[in-house]
Design a protein around this nucleic acid. Sequence first.
DNA 1: AGCCTGACGCCGC
DNA 2: CGCGGCGCCAGGC
Length: 123
Amino acid sequence: MDATEKKLLIKAIYDIVSIIPRGKATSYGAIARAVGYPNLSRMVGRIMGSGEVDFDTVPAHRVVNSSGILSGRHAFGSPGRMAELLADEGVAVRNNRIVGWKNVFWDPLTEIQADNMPHHPRR
DNA sequence: AGCCTGACGCCGC
DNA sequence: CGCGGCGCCAGGC
């Protein structure tokens, strides 16, 4: 993967993360699939934790692993900060894991398609 | 080039 | 549900 491709990939990832709704969360793998690189879930995590992400504009706290576990919590300053940010949005966290993960999970692929069909109800 | 690491994910037990 | 094992792949050394 050359520098140009990587740059585009990073932008695509930021775009996805930026539209994760409040009260929802998605996973590294789901983002990787949405941007067309299904095998690069690890790289999504690497980028989120690279220190280059502006947490004020990119809601990185809404990205967890496929089980709903806050695997990136150590990058938020204090240990409980990530859970705190989620709690403020109505997402409960217990033992570093999102409570009711299946219902909180927001899949970029299916949800973005729903956004493009304004004449049909979407949740 | 080889070796190790890791905000990952899937499967089996 | 937890845990280990394995596949995955970019980056750092």
